Amino acid sequence: MAGTAMIWVFEAFVIAHIVTGATGLVAFWVPVAGRKGGDTHRRFGRIFTFSMLATGAAAVGISIATLIAPLETHPHLPDAAFVRGIFGWMMLYLAVLTVNLAWYGWLCITLKRDRAAMRTPVNLLLQGLLAALAINCVAQGILIGEALMIGISGIGFATVATNLFYLYRARPHPLGWLKEHIKALVGAGISVYTAFFAFGAVRLMPEIALNPVLWSIPLIVGLSIIIYQWRAIARKGGGRERKRPLTA
Rank of each mutant, 00 (worst) to 15 (best):
L94I: 15
H74K: 08
I226S: 02
I7T: 01
F50K: 03
T110A: 01
T73M: 06
I217N: 11
M52E: 11
I62K: 07
F44R: 09
G145V: 04
R169A: 00
I86N: 07
G34V: 05
V60R: 14
I217C: 14
L125H: 14
C137G: 14
W230L: 02
L143S: 13
R42F: 03
V192H: 10
V14W: 09
R35Q: 04
A117E: 01
L204F: 15
S216W: 11
A57H: 03
F48V: 07
L125I: 09
A117V: 01
G145L: 13
A158G: 09
S153D: 10
G237T: 05
A12E: 07
T40S: 06
F87C: 05
K243W: 12
T73V: 11
V83H: 06
R35E: 03
L164I: 00
G145Q: 08
A16W: 09
V138G: 15
V14H: 12
G21I: 13
F157L: 04
P75W: 14
I86W: 10
R171F: 01
V9Y: 06
A16R: 11
A58R: 04
P31A: 02
H173C: 01
D39A: 06
M52S: 01
W29R: 05
T49V: 09
G238W: 07
V9D: 00
A57N: 01
A170W: 02
F196L: 09
D114L: 01
T194I: 02
H181Q: 05
L143I: 15
D114E: 06
L185G: 01
M6E: 03
R113L: 04
G88M: 10
F165N: 03
D39N: 01
C137N: 12
A65D: 03
H41C: 08
L125F: 13
F13A: 15
L219M: 13
S224N: 13
F50D: 10
P31M: 09
C137M: 09
M149R: 13
F48H: 14
S63P: 15
V14N: 13
G24P: 08
I227N: 14
F197Y: 14
I68H: 00
R240W: 05
A131M: 09
N211W: 10
K179M: 02
G3S: 12
R113N: 12
R115L: 04
G222T: 11
M149Q: 14
C137D: 15
A147D: 08
I208W: 12
F196P: 05
M205G: 05
Q127V: 07
L53Y: 14
R119T: 01
F165T: 03
V96Q: 06
V122N: 05
A134Q: 06
G3A: 09
G34F: 13
C108P: 08
T40E: 10
W106Q: 11
P206G: 14
V32D: 07
A69Q: 09
A195W: 14
